[in-house]
């Protein structure tokens, strides 16, 4: 599903070059729940940006669903993000001037779906995150946990194959964080591949696999046993670990 080989990403200034990712290789199979951990500055967010096609990389090869993303135009990357990837951000990134329903609708509109189809997807997504009754609320009228659930609804409404979560519980208290993680697990169990970037080892333990980054390089792969991957995904994940 996601295959990165020797990816390097360098941030350059006039004086110095900083390797955010250095010869980074990772393979994630369909249905996996992978946590990417590491200290601040270890390259977690850069990895997420590259994986989510939000940023280019300098060298290496990255295939998403068998497509070499290096060759894609900006428009094609936008289309791929829209159709295959769902994003969950640490600070929710809801559009404050749009209500819950319209926020969830944003990626669906860019996909050009018919209004009836969009309505159906929005309702399903909001029901899944338990906020169907808040469809007309503005983000400012919701708690942090509810806002993040709206963001999750926005991420999954388009039925992406692949969910990228950037510190999704970073701005939440522990109770809300647990609810959000439960929700992510539930989504994963429905077959969606999840890449979770976090610095919290406790959250990482809820993933099936942990990739630990230091200085832009993988320092450790660790598999956790408590929660099995959805059928079909576990074997692939195990193979990737091996």
């Amino acid at each position: 599903m996601l295959k990165m080989q020797d990816i390097s990403k360098i941030y350059r200034t006039d004086l110095i070059e900083t390797y955010a990712l250095r010869s980074f290789s990772l393979e994630v199979t369909a249905g996996e729940f992978v946590a990417v951990t590491g200290p601040s500055g270890s390259g977690k967010t850069t990895f997420l940006n590259v994986a989510g096609l939000l940023e280019d990389f300098d060298s290496g090869r990255y295939e998403l669903d068998g497509t070499d993303v290096r060759a894609l135009s900006d428009d094609a990357r936008s289309r791929l993000r829209n159709q295959r990837i769902g994003f969950i951000f640490q600070s929710f990134n809801l559009i404050p001037d749009l209500n819950v329903q319209d926020n969830v609708d944003v990626p669906l509109r860019y996909r050009g779906l018919a209004a009836s189809d969009r309505r159906e997807r929005i309702t399903s997504a909001l029901e899944l995150v338990g906020l169907a009754s808040r469809a007309r609320h503005m983000p400012a009228q919701l708690s942090g946990g509810q806002q993040q659930r709206v963001a999750i609804a926005r991420a999954i409404a388009g039925d992406p194959a692949f969910l990228l979560a950037d510190e999704p519980t970073g701005n939440l208290d522990s109770l809300m964080a647990r609810q959000v993680m439960d929700l992510l697990e539930q989504i994963n169990e429905m077959g969606t591949t999840i890449l979770l970037v976090t610095h919290d080892p406790e959250l990482a333990r809820r993933a099936q696999r942990n990739v630990h980054l230091i200085d832009g390089q993988i320092s450790d792969f660790r598999a956790y046993e408590p929660r099995p991957a959805p059928s079909g995904a576990a074997d692939a994940a195990g193979a990737a670990l091996a």
């Binding site: 989510g52 428009d75 829209n82």
Partner: peptide
């Protein structure tokens, strides 16, 4: 700016 970046992230093209 953040909102525009978010729109781009979730699939908006430059033309959008």
């Amino acid at each position: 700016t953040k909102q525009i970046g978010t729109r781009r992230a979730v699939g908006a093209r430059r033309a959008d």
